[in-house]
Design a protein around this nucleic acid. Structure first.
Length: 378
DNA sequence: AATATTTGACCGGT
DNA sequence: ACCGGTCAAATATT
């Protein structure tokens, strides 16, 4: 096991070195690719140590690996439902993506020098207040909640309702501000690359606009507990406040699930994806300043490292990694509205195409992934 | 038919 | 009691 840890640490070291060199070498594509390859090789080696059988194990006797074999990572409190699995499927692409600028636009495949670290370090502001609950439930300013009149629709008996709803789970939380995507007369909610299913909308006290609640579309199959809230700002109707909560434990998104074994996609990587999928110059323009809100995680380098490994985002600069406190944290990042594109990653393109269509055919997609599990896992 | 969205009711925390 | 978050039936969409 020491070898595995050494290998992971090596990958992290290489990634860290690369991060430091990026400002000077960001235009050296070949060089960057070589360095990325080295990083990937380090992690792949670790993966192979952890899974020496290459996924040929028997699957009949074991459920899908919805939970890791070890305790939940401390960065994400609560019930630990956000822990990762089935992550080593496409490690190279996943790990390379952030270095290569995520999913650059085909119209500007090489003009997107940003990587997550630089974007976050240069432009984003991250608010790292500890969270009390999953979505920061609690009281806010006064004022009546706008409620709809009751309909004639009958409600099931109380005893038939779920008796024990889970609330107040600690967890990693991050709030980002996303400009409204305006296409014609319609304002589209921000697209972060994941597929979400809306499960609720609520008028919020003191807010002009209702808050929408989304969960990962693939929650049912993967038990993916990722959720998000989307709400327009009162003082800026053209900006959405998106609060992410929970790690994506599914492999069914279009995002770079920056996962090594036991490393789920996190809200941080979600934001990373949004950043990386932002090929416009407005990225830096919009997300200017506010570094004072960035948690100085360099004060806790060891913790940052371990958290990074657990998060599977070892390429992430320590300043960001440190924003994920063991007992949960929230972050706030300004990002531009972003589309997504995966032109440089044909394999991911295929998956993306499948998964995007999967938003309309979740069950079939789940079936596909079930087959993938059958071939590979357990 | 399958899936997603809407929306009033319910539940837990404060 | 109030409020935010979630459930789930009804409805809409594909």
């Amino acid at each position: 096991m020491d070898d595995v840890l050494r290998q992971i640490d090596e990958g992290f070291r290489l990634a860290r070195d690369l991060m430091e060199e990026l400002p000077a070498a960001q235009n050296e594509r070949t060089y960057l690719a070589d360095r990325c390859h080295g990083i990937v090789q380090a992690y792949v080696a670790a993966i192979r140590m952890l899974h020496p059988h290459g996924g040929t194990e028997d699957t009949a006797s074991s459920p899908p690996p919805l939970r890791p074999p070890h305790p939940p990572s401390p960065h994400f409190g609560g019930d630990g439902s956000g822990s990762g699995q089935h992550d080593h499927e496409i490690p190279q692409l996943d790990l390379l993506r952030p270095f290569l600028g995520g999913a650059p636009s085909p119209s500007a495949p090489s003009s997107f020098p940003h990587n997550l670290g630089r974007l976050l370090a240069e432009s984003s502001f991250i608010n790292t207040t500890p969270v009390v609950d999953a979505f920061g439930a609690g009281t806010s300013s006064g004022g009546p909640v706008r409620r709809q009149a009751s309909s004639s629709r009958s409600s099931p008996p109380v005893q038939l309702r779920q008796q024990h709803r889970r609330r107040r789970e600690n967890g990693e939380r991050m709030t980002i501000m996303v400009p409204v995507q305006r296409t014609g007369n319609t304002d589209l909610p921000p697209d972060d690359g994941y597929t979400w299913r809306k499960y609720g909308q609520k008028d919020i006290l003191g807010s002009r606009f209702p808050r929408s609640y989304y969960r990962c579309t693939h929650k049912n199959y993967y038990g993916c507990e990722a959720k998000k809230k989307v709400q327009r700002l009162d003082d800026d109707p053209f900006t959405y406040e998106v609060t992410y909560c929970g790690n994506h434990t599914c492999l069914t998104s279009t995002t770079p699930l920056l996962t090594i074994p036991a490393g789920p996609a996190t809200v941080a990587s979600t934001a990373a994806n949004m950043l990386n999928n932002s090929p416009t110059d407005s990225a830096t323009a919009l997300a200017a300043g506010h570094q004072d809100l960035f948690m100085p995680a360099a004060e806790h380098p060891a913790q940052a490292l371990s958290t990074a490994i657990q998060l599977g985002i070892s390429w992430m600069p320590s300043t960001l990694v440190g924003s994920s406190a063991p007992e949960g944290s929230s972050s706030q990042v300004n990002v531009p509205a972003s589309g997504r594109d995966t032109a440089e990653y044909p394999v991911m393109d295929l998956a993306d195409a499948m998964f995007n269509s999967g938003s309309r055919g979740g069950s079939s997609m789940d079936a596909i992934f079930l087959a993938r599990h059958d071939r590979r896992d357990t």
